[in-house]
């Protein structure tokens, strides 16, 4: 799917102007909006929402940072500025359910906004996809990944922080992938190295970068494909694959992209 091709995505403000209230807010996140690689994941997930005929909208230009990186880097003031303004915006649209493709946004909405008065049903896109498949509204083609060797890298903020470990694995198995686990997986997975503000700064001095260590663990499984479910993990794994000169034979895709591919998009 080319990025140039236009994709129809409902925008919250336009719906509100017509007096419509969608079921879900699809929260894209900063990486989903601005990172060239991750924009493809955003498109893939939007195409899934369109495929299932979901009632949803994005905030578009009204979206802003959740404040998550600020809080984790110690700037509570900035975090709460962002959070309180967003909660006000959500309230103005009567938003109750949020689907996110970013684990960091997911975690902050689900676990940290309630303290500031923002209570929503927060749904990870992985849970959504698994649910839609079992409800029969999403029927991915099963042959596309038959026998493809896939290893899945758990993002800290889905697995360790929020116990979301099985939906991505169930989805991969359903796609026919030959799922191979890394030694450290699920709650014990090694971080990609980008959390806690590290994405936005140079790493401290050490023997090697965390992403190289983790990509090494992934490559040790001998995969055709490394599946990820977080924008920062994707940057790290893709960089790691490049660092190890394995771009030719090992791909890195997000779970949403694999589903979209199997749908023929």
């Amino acid at each position: 799917m080319s990025v140039k091709e236009k994709i129809d995505v409902p925008v919250m403000a336009e719906l509100a102007a017509r007096g419509e209230q969608p079921e879900y807010l699809f929260w894209v996140g900063c990486a989903g909006a601005f990172d060239d690689r991750y924009k493809k994941v955003t498109r893939a997930f939007a195409s899934i929402l369109n495929h299932t005929g979901e009632s949803y909208a994005v905030l578009g230009t009204e979206e802003t940072c959740t404040g998550d990186p600020a809080r984790r880097a110690g700037n509570e003031m900035l975090f709460q500025m962002q959070a309180l303004q967003l909660i006000e915006l959500f309230d103005s649209y009567g938003i109750r359910k949020i689907i996110t493709i970013c684990p960091h946004c997911y975690n902050v909405f689900k676990n940290e906004y309630p303290d500031l008065g923002g209570n929503y049903q927060v749904i990870s896109y992985l849970d959504y996809i698994e649910g839609e498949i079992s409800a029969g509204r999403l029927n991915p083609g099963l042959e596309k990944f038959n026998g493809v060797k896939v290893t899945y890298h758990d993002p800290c903020y889905l697995a360790r922080a929020n116990n979301i470990t099985e939906p991505p694995r169930n989805i991969l198995r359903l796609l026919g992938a030959n799922l191979i686990e890394m030694k450290r997986n699920r709650h014990f997975a090694l971080c990609c190295g980008a959390g806690g503000g590290q994405m936005f700064k140079e790493a401290e001095k050490g023997e090697k970068e965390v992403f190289i260590e983790r990509t090494g663990e992934a490559l040790d499984t001998g995969p055709d494909l490394i599946a990820t479910s977080c924008p920062f993990c994707m940057v790290m794994m893709t960089d790691g694959i490049k660092y190890k000169n394995r771009e030719e034979d090992v791909k890195n895709y997000d779970i949403a992209e694999l589903i979209a591919q199997s749908l023929g998009n």
């Binding site: 990025v3 140039k4 924009k39 979206e63």
Partner: peptide
Amino acid sequence: SEDRLEWTG
């Protein structure tokens, strides 16, 4: 933030 919908093409 004006560019936040660029991904839609």
